[in-house]
Design a protein around this nucleic acid. Structure first.
Lengths: 129, 129
DNA sequence: CACTTTCGTTTACGCGCGTAAACGTTAATT
DNA sequence: AATTAACGTTTACGCGCGTAAACGAAAGTG
């Protein structure tokens, strides 16, 4: 329930892999990111270590290698990033923020439908807050 | 049309003032932020200078004092922050992002109405994209 | 005019981050 | 067993940022 540690942009690329599949060995992570991000092995190792130090991930020994697991869940991360962003840029005005995004970004019809349903539900579920 | 310079969180507090009212003298800015943010005069002066160097603001001399004007518009700023955030945290998935925000944050009825109308309009305006 | 206050400019410093080299230890190979 | 390869740990370095002190010039005050 503590606030999750701050995860930097580069570090978040490591986390993204672990959120997709857990655990992963250092090598699996390095091979992926080496390509996707064009980082050197050493750079990626640094991120792993920093994430360990921050307690954003943990490892278990598997023979000579380590297997890494996320300690911070994707959901916690999103929640905390959302909050920070919303306050930093929009002073907490969610409505304004969503509106801004909607006018800037292209949404698929499916997205629109989904959001409409969400809004409809919110209207009903919370008549008086 | 160039990408706006990166404006840090602290610096953005200065910008927020200038977006509300322009121009402002150093003193007006300092007096405001000194209180709101509990910063020292010197700290705020640093931000003004960094923003000048980044060409996020400019000044005109008014006698012994400077009057500051934004060079980066609020809209440019929002656009660029939105984009960065969306890509960094959601890999560009707007629909997902909005949904996440909607489930986390409380929206006023007015906000909900407004978003619904926006969505409705998007549906009509862009039948085939 | 000398002194103090005001206001802008320059310099400083620790920390996180992006980036990676260097190092040490353990395991594999000859 | 000695050498090399693999893998994790430690150290490094420049840059932006939060934070502010120090400095210099100009203007107001006695």
């Amino acid at each position: 329930m503590n606030n999750p540690p701050r995860i930097s942009e580069a570090e978040s690329e490591v986390m993204k892999l672990l959120w997709q599949k857990e655990p992963l060995s250092a090598n699996e992570i390095i091979e992926q990111l080496k390509q996707q991000m064009d980082w050197s092995d050493q750079t990626i190792k640094t991120f792993l270590n920093r994430l360990l130090k921050k307690e954003a991930i943990r490892f278990e020994k598997a023979g000579r290698n380590y297997l890494y697991y996320p300690l911070v869940s994707h959901d916690e991360y999103l929640k905390s990033e959302n909050k920070t962003f919303l306050n930093r840029v929009y002073n907490g005005a969610v409505g304004l923020m969503c509106a801004k995004f909607l006018e800037e970004e292209k949404l698929s019809d499916a997205d629109i439908e989904q959001l409409q349903q969400l809004l409809e539900k919110m209207k009903k579920d919370e008549p008086g807050v």
